[in-house]
Nucleic acid binder design. Structure first.
Lengths: 280, 280
DNA sequence: CAGTGGTCTAGACCACACT
DNA sequence: GTGTGGTCTAGACCACTGC
């Protein structure tokens, strides 16, 4: 499957100047002629450098969500390090939820498509412990239009004011009861071609669609929660009383390399549901 | 400091029946006469068993919050395994925030007393990125009384209805502006002797007080968030309008062994602050 | 300097999945 | 059986801390 040692440009770019241990510096005289690529300040442990190289392959699309990546042994040969070092790199990527190990089968690129029981980023649960005792959410797309980024949206997405963005508004319901109103802003260039029809026809998580149709994988997200009052139009969309308390969830989602790729503002009805969070 | 091999009862309680590798089964004929202690179903990797033994020492108070634990080498000798195996056990305990490694100094029992910049479980931040640009919170204890557990409180704390509990109500303020109203329920037996005076005089995090005065270390917590409306008495305590939206945060905090030791219900004003959460 | 955790290697064997 | 990740060991050297 993999062809170790054939990746000449990747076989020797490792910075050994600060790598402890005997193995690498003894395994070959790397003339260190290779440039340090881009933003990497180098001077990091070997396994961190390996982690960076694997990350680069993930970003470049060499391995796509759901794919198996080469075995630890193959990667060790390719990068000219020991299997244990590759293992430590993969360990960290696995705890970051970028890779998934499966004993006896291999290591896979994580995906939102079949991520355990899907909807990894949705934390709204019924107060009764009934896990998804209501079936999947029903989606209704209210609008989907291209527009120019406001100063605020541009700031959060790392764009410039006026850059093209796509705005989506939708309502999620459980058992016919509206529960979430979401406004979503996406960079226009990366999501060129996304239409209301595409969204409406799609089943499954929106982040899975982003992966398969636009090659954008959301890796992590930061949310800011507040309690707000429903204004009249929001109330009518959610079927609640004007002035009713709603949980506001403002999320910025990032793809590889901490690049923001989505701004989302959700308003959650929490009369019979709650946002669950675990602290440690 | 440590006296390896002197802990006869701990030197050979490891279940080697399913331990892979050559080292352990070759290092001594453990007659497996030792009983499996208590709830441990055994049949786990060696490092998991080591993790359990370390955990037991943490629970028993052999090593207290802030203490250094024996070096990896000493622990390896004590448990009759290799240093690498101890290392993997400590790795997991460190990612669980039970232990903290410090290069060149040792491995320490985590504590809420000087946990980075304190208040590890408080997620309410000012909307302006000014990290604690307002100084520490001002605390005002409103009441502190012993009572009997309601059915609901008993259920959440793993007690029986009517068992003695301690209830505390307090207000936290920033720059003189009330921001949080908290009701806290604690098991009466574990916190015998906790008085309003103790709480009022104490500076620093409440969880640090729990550690030093009652030997109770909170390890993790689960929170349920909702948006609610301020009722009149809450509003007056928080200085907000009746009916104003508040963020309700219901927390159950656990000590070692997933034993619930605190139920806390906070009401947060979120006009100029937000609850921050990171998803991955 | 000695002692600690941190990194790296090499080789062994186990547990699991597929064929 | 073959190949994968998972565990375990042993020994080396590096980086940091404090005596």
């Amino acid at each position: 499957m993999a062809t170790p040692l054939s990746h000449a440009t990747e076989a020797t770019p490792l910075d050994t100047r600060t790598s402890p241990g005997t193995g690498v510096s003894a395994s070959g005289e790397n003339p260190s002629a290779s440039a340090p690529a881009h933003g990497t300040p180098a001077f990091s442990p070997l396994y961190q450098q390996i982690k960076g190289l694997i990350l680069r392959s993930l970003q470049s699309g060499e391995w796509k969500p759901g794919d198996v990546i080469p075995s630890e042994f193959d990667l060790a040969a390719r990068f000219r390090v020991s299997q244990g070092t590759v293992r430590k790199a993969i360990d960290e990527l696995a705890t970051d939820n970028l890779l998934v190990r499966r004993q006896g089968k291999g290591t896979f690129v994580a995906t939102h498509a079949e991520q355990h029981i899907q909807y990894r980023f949705l934390r709204l649960l019924p107060d009764t412990g009934d896990l998804d005792g209501q079936g999947p959410a029903e989606r209704r797309i209210i609008e989907c239009k291209r527009q120019r980024a406001s100063a605020e949206v541009a700031r959060q997405l790392g764009l410039r004011t006026g850059d093209p963005v796509l705005q989506v508004r939708r309502v999620l319901a459980f058992s016919g009861m509206p529960a979430i109103l979401e406004d979503i802003w996406l960079p226009g260039t990366a999501f060129k071609g996304l239409t209301q029809e595409t969204l409406a026809e799609d089943k499954g998580p929106m982040y899975a669609l982003f992966e398969s149709q636009f090659g954008v994988r959301m890796v992590r997200a930061v949310e800011k929660l507040k309690a707000v009052s429903a204004d009249p139009d929001v109330a009518s969309l959610l079927g609640s009383e004007p002035g009713a308390p709603l949980l506001s969830v403002e999320r910025v989602a990032y793809t590889y390399n901490d690049e923001p790729m989505e701004l989302r503002r959700g308003l959650y009805r929490t009369e019979s549901r709650h946002y669950r969070n675990e602290l440690s």
